[in-house]
Nucleic acid binder design. Structure first.
Lengths: 218, 218
DNA sequence: TAGATTGTTAATCGATTAACAATC
DNA sequence: TAGATTGTTAATCGATTAACAATC
């Protein structure tokens, strides 16, 4: 009876859940006890009816006349996504980008733990990065296997990207977050996420020039 | 006729154009002269019929029986998006993240130029970052106005995010690329892009736990 | 009870895809 | 001419939204 019906959840629903979660965490920090779909809709730019419909794919979490309990809903959404427990990941590349990622509070907030950091540069190996020691990338496969790690973050120079991706894949990594601008190829067993902000900038550009008229013709 | 018909292009189309562009640039580098929608479909994971349909919103660029001229199509897509000429941007925050962004080759590849880098830390102000000198964030408004810059990149610590966003907005910035994990509020005149990779990780998590069964119950 | 807001159905809208005639 | 592949129509599919009865 409801709840466990795993009946083909539309991909769009899954993509919106992290968005809801983010705003919910914010509301919790602000001390909000409950939230209506209308308010959630304002904060996420999603139609309230759609939010309610999205949530009913997993059960009914709200109370009519009242709204949703913020803490309870965070809990449910995290359980649905699988972020109710921690996930270890390996970070490859300890340069500026790698350092920034290791520092990133957003990861910890959602239960992601950087288990190990690797680099190929002897000058960097052995140095500290936050509370971790940078390891030789030669140890990559061993650490991934031993610690049964499923998520890998690529923060290496472009020329090293494909090679490291191959190694992550064959070591058994299931998800690769690619921070390089390289078009990386991975086997079907791996989910690749390209986080290329330029891609987003480009598509924004379209609307930008449109809004300003085609005044500047040169 | 055709071509210039600006008749409400679906947002999905605009979002896919940068994807096509990225792959096309790759094909060009590989020396490919032409490409079929079928091949483009393989490389982008988009249905070939959809690619053709997407492109016809802007005219007909292909040759029947042959395919699309890679260089010509790159040119057309860049013109549609507005990335056929350069765009200056300001970068706020010269820490690890800011440094990584300033180094990012993906920006230059698509005609984005980092015009100025700002920081609030006196220890950083005046130091070099690539071929640029880090300036005092106090100069932010002046530089944005003088150089008529429309794009701003937020790479500051979380506590400074909203404040800098406010300043960028009132200085006349049109697009903000937010690299912080903070939920930033901007006026309607500004397009905000949150590049929170954790958001993507979270939604991948859903499929990850699904694929592996619910074996690990702890 | 009266007011509010959910859960859910039904209607709308738009996007995706298959198919094929046009044509290189 | 024969083969290939586009441009485009028409059919399908799914997602979005409006509306409202259920119910807190």
């Amino acid at each position: 009876m409801a709840g466990g019906t795993d009946q083909k959840i539309p991909a769009g629903v899954i993509e919106r859940l992290p968005l809801y979660l983010n705003v919910l965490i914010h509301l919790k920090q602000d001390g909000q006890g409950t939230v209506s779909s209308a308010r959630l809709g304002e904060l996420t730019d999603v139609n309230p009816a759609q939010i309610r419909r999205d949530l009913t794919h997993f059960g009914s979490f709200g109370r009519r006349g009242v709204g949703y309990d913020v803490v309870a809903l965070i809990d449910r959404v995290q359980r649905i996504l699988g972020s109710d427990h921690t996930h270890r990941l390996v970070l490859v590349g300890a340069g500026n980008l790698g350092s920034a990622i290791a520092d990133y509070t957003g990861l910890r907030k959602h239960g992601f733990i950087v288990s190990a950091v690797f680099d190929r540069d002897p000058a960097r190996i052995g140095t500290r990065l936050g509370d971790m020691v940078v390891r030789d990338v030669a140890e990559l496969e061993r650490v991934v296997t031993e610690q049964d790690i499923r998520i890998g973050v690529l923060a290496v120079p472009p020329d090293a990207a494909q090679g490291v991706a191959d190694r992550l894949a064959s070591a058994g990594i299931r998800v690769i977050l690619n921070y390089t601008p390289v078009v990386v190829r991975v086997p079907a067993s791996v989910t690749l996420h390209n986080t290329d902000p330029v891609q987003e900038l480009l598509h924004t550009l379209y609307y930008l020039s449109r809004r300003e008229g085609v005044a500047s013709d040169g």
